[in-house]
């Protein structure tokens, strides 16, 4: 029952299927350095924080583009 969670360049496979996006964000906030206001895509579709992630899905917390150059 695993899902893949990505944020920026980093990704992690976790046994977290059946939990909400909000739970996932809280659980991985530090290890993936997830911005608090990051938009969420599940398998490419925008979802709300109460979406329940299914086995095999990919959750992406979309990082903003780098600002500096």
């Amino acid at each position: 029952m695993s899902i893949r969670v990505v944020c920026g360049a980093n990704a992690q496979q976790v046994e977290f299927a059946g939990r909400t996006v909000a739970d996932t964000r809280e659980y991985l906030q530090q290890s993936l350095n997830i911005p608090a206001d990051a938009r969420v895509l599940v398998t490419g579709r925008a979802v709300a924080d109460d979406y329940v992630v299914q086995d095999g899905e990919q959750v992406e917390f979309v990082r903003e583009s780098g600002r500096k150059g």
Partner: peptide, 30 residues
């Protein structure tokens, strides 16, 4: 290309024959 202190990203916007081959920088994802 753009970066913060230790991370960043590169976006590629390619137009060919008047069609978007990749997303503009201003897509709904950004």
């Amino acid at each position: 290309g753009g970066n913060e202190f230790t991370d960043g990203n590169v976006q590629v916007f390619w137009r060919q024959n008047g069609q978007n081959r990749t997303l503009p920088l201003t897509s709904e994802f950004h």
